[in-house]
Design a protein around this nucleic acid. Structure first.
Lengths: 341, 341
DNA sequence: GTTAGCACTCTGCAATTTCGAGTGCTAAAT
DNA sequence: ATTTAGCACTCGAAATTGCAGAGTGCTAAC
């Protein structure tokens, strides 16, 4: 489809535009040491590239900038592997050599490291609870009617929420219920809990508790998982330094989206394991039409449990960011697996 | 010090500037129906007010804007009580008539309501754990060496973190330790825990556990309170619509500070109970020199346990925001007290 | 003490000009 | 058949100019 020279030119344009944020003209390309063609030749190729949709002109007589299609082609075919600098590696390593005992701590700090290293905004989705299994249930009464329900998972994750205790259940009933739940449901993945209550617990409850119906409702309330996902952010303000976000309204839209966890969750939700790059429209969200999101899943025991990601302008330092995100996601995976060997 | 007329003029200027964000000229003041003096008279008073430091001129020939001192005087002496609109009251009421069982839920939603209602950014500091007392300690082993420690307080707050178990302690040791902690420390305010460990627990541990030193360390680790403060935000992007924050760099500074929880904590830390208004420099933080922070503490059993606050430009709708913050903080106090009667 | 009047100042805006980078095309060169 | 040089043309960014309007400070009159 594209000639070698066109590819080369596309690559130089993307590299240059990523670096300078200025439209790239034919003359400046011809000065590039890898290129030995005259400006006029390059102009012809640029015109072709534009016709094919890889480049755009901000206005009639200016240099070209890459289109989304241009970036896409660059990412898919022209990307040179990037060697992380010693400093970058060091920074990431530091995260894992700390005395880590807390999963959430690693996750949180990953967000900070990501944004510091890349100078873009970072988003990290906490380990999905889907994969984790119930380890223990606890009910701790606070008053006559209110108690705290605590769910602990095998990954050390703790969920808690308050529950109301129906007046028809006395404290020995509650104790019984909790015992039953622990007996029957430990080891069940969190996402199957609801189902398991009906199958495994309902019958037993009926045998042992008088106010059977209230007991069942109470059990369900106890095991309700509260927050499905935790989202951590880093360096949101980095976005403001990008020249493409000098328009206050753009930024505002973007920051508003950042305040809605659900949208962000959708945005980072992995389609497949490993690295994902979504450019502009591909994000399927108007506020992100000028953004690229690079994300990668991290795993626990070989199964993806969470996502780390970077949000920046489409004009993003792809090679470097991809390197960092990839490296860090693998690091987290390994750290998690080491943690609960 | 100031004549009545000067006060009146200052008030009109502040009101007008708050509303329009435009410097206020003498002519437009003289048109105000409460004022029956000519523009020239007002000009004289304005010149005086400027000399006294209550007003400033952006440039030689323009209207005046209030200085920090001007706002301060306005807030201290000229503020007219503001009647909250039906809608505002309704919104806040809705928060409390919901079926609330979770303290953190109320706190979180307060942030959203505050920012929605005021169109400024809101910050809410979660109930300080200082005031709450230990209700129960739990250790749940995850593996040979790692366990989750769970602390429940009488306010339904749950803290959890992972701890490492020294290999010198076997599982029955751990059980003993936990029992001792529960026997001796329940009811102790969290902030006194460290002290109480030494006083109440150390001796008992020495009697019952062989590896006494490890046991003590383990106990300390278990009771370590992890996060002292939770901070919730709402409507940060609202700041962007204020004309004084059209300068990207200003905004960036501000948003950066918002990412440091400690600074924010200092900013909202109450000096005294009740309502606090800090204007510009009074915030003691360069990034906030053009901001006013209005905050109020909320209480549990008569003692302040947390803070809600609003960050906006110094040109803030003081009467309305003060009304809202005041009302909401009282509402939260009451809700908390009702919750654990 | 208050007001009217007037000269003066300064900003913001719009119209205009200039400058330079960049293009597209044609014709010559390889 | 490519590649290159040359040239006219386009367009945006930045600088320049010229108002119009809002506001002030001062003086003199009320």
């Amino acid at each position: 489809m594209l000639t070698d020279r066109q590819m080369l030119i596309l690559q130089v344009i993307v590299d240059s535009y990523i670096q300078s944020a200025e439209p790239v003209g034919s003359r400046s390309i011809s000065k590039n040491e890898d290129i030995n063609y005259s400006a006029a030749t390059i102009r012809n190729d640029m015109a072709d590239l534009e016709e094919l949709g890889y480049l755009e002109k901000p206005h009639t007589s200016s240099g070209r900038i890459p289109s989304e299609k241009g970036y896409r082609h660059y990412v898919d075919h022209l990307l040179l592997p990037h060697h992380l600098s010693e400093e970058e590696l060091q920074n990431m390593k530091a995260l894992f050599t700390k005395n880590i005992v807390e999963v959430e701590q690693i996750i949180k700090e990953s967000a900070t490291i990501l944004s510091d290293l890349t100078s873009y905004a970072s988003i990290v989705l906490g380990p999905e609870i889907f994969e984790s299994k119930l380890k223990q249930v606890q009910i701790i009464p606070l008053s006559e009617q209110v108690a705290v329900a605590i769910l602990v998972t095998n990954t050390g994750h703790v969920e808690n929420h308050t529950v109301t205790m129906p007046s028809t259940l006395n404290s020995s009933d509650v104790e019984k219920i909790v015992n039953i739940l622990n007996e029957r449901l430990v080891g069940v993945p969190l996402y199957q809990l609801e189902e398991a209550i009906q199958k495994e617990v309902a019958g037993v409850l009926r045998q042992h508790i008088k106010s059977y119906k209230d007991a069942l409702i109470f059990a369900e309330e106890t095991l309700q998982k509260t927050k499905q996902e935790k989202v951590f952010y880093g360096g949101k303000s980095n976005l403001l330094i990008q020249p493409e976000f000098h328009d206050i309204n753009k930024v505002k839209e973007l920051l508003e989206v950042f305040e809605e966890d659900e949208t962000i969750f959708d945005l980072l939700k992995p389609e497949q394991d490993g690295l994902s790059i979504r450019i502009g429209q591909e994000n399927g969200n108007e506020a992100f039409e000028d953004c690229t999101v690079i994300s990668a899943t991290y795993s626990y025991k070989g199964k993806p449990v969470g996502t780390i990601g970077i949000v920046g302008p489409t004009r993003m330092e792809y090679p470097r960011v991809i390197g960092i995100v990839d490296h860090l996601s693998k690091g987290i995976s390994q750290a998690l697996t080491n943690l609960y060997r």
